[in-house]
Design a protein around this nucleic acid. Sequence first.
DNA 1: ATGTTAATGCAATTATGTTGCAAATATAAC
DNA 2: GTTATATTTGCAACATAATTGCATTAACAT
Lengths: 145, 145
Amino acid sequence: MENNTERFEKLLVKNGLKRTAPRLQVLEILSSRDSATSQPYLEQVMGKDADRVTLYRVLQAFEEKGIIHKVLDQQGTANYAICSEGCSAHEHHDEHVHFNCDNCHKIYCLDSVKIPALKVPAGFKVEHLNLIATGLCANCSSKVN
Amino acid sequence: MENNTERFEKLLVKNGLKRTAPRLQVLEILSSRDSATSQPYLEQVMGKDADRVTLYRVLQAFEEKGIIHKVLDQQGTANYAICSEGCSAHEHHDEHVHFNCDNCHKIYCLDSVKIPALKVPAGFKVEHLNLIATGLCANCSSKVN
DNA sequence: ATGTTAATGCAATTATGTTGCAAATATAAC
DNA sequence: GTTATATTTGCAACATAATTGCATTAACAT
């Protein structure tokens, strides 16, 4: 079985991106976490390993290529998670539910949960659905209550 | 039938807020529009009638009291709409669908659309649902296509 | 009319996001 | 391995957005 770094290198090459330290580091961090990661957190963890501007550009490039997707939390802060299979530069397919924990503030991508079909008023044409649920995650609901 | 200004004055008093010009103006603007209103737009319309900081504070106070609710658009910009009945300082009840038009970028609160129940993984406790649909609104879909 | 509290406006500060450009680095060709 | 080329990075400057403290002003109860 190949290790993470090899996987990530392939992923970068596949998308026409060069194998650079900041890019690999971002992929390592995002993949090591079970929930979406906020930009401020990334900034903090990367510290002086990468410039703030570089982080912006790495995230932007990844999003454009369909490697990661962005979720905004309640405060409007950008959070990022690695895309499931099927996303590409051309189109994202991340129409899963994002669960926002009120306690630990983690954002979970609930890939297994399907968004139900929606009846909208006449004339409206729905292209994409973005469902954000808030409450307590499995971890916190066992501890808090 | 009472006019808007009277209604708004009552609304403010009911929530323990003083009847001031900037507050009344914000309520006038929000209620005159059929979709949620962005903070930048409010800022522009209010012009020199109110300081930018005042606007922030008015919006914050209104949101806390349950007079208006905030919706973030795709870019993370805050948009505001007057709450339906039933919202209070203690709790918001705005679990309707927010429709984001890709063409005119208006945000509609589709009060009539009910968000379907959701099956989440074991342990997760859903408190609130926030469903954002994107696509074309009734107005634009008749013009664009 | 007057006093008290809340709200506003201004100035200063901090945080966040963007752009241009020179230096550094990845990678392909030799 | 060296060299050439294009990409990527880091820095600096800039632009925009949000926050805080405080003195002044305005609302409203008495």
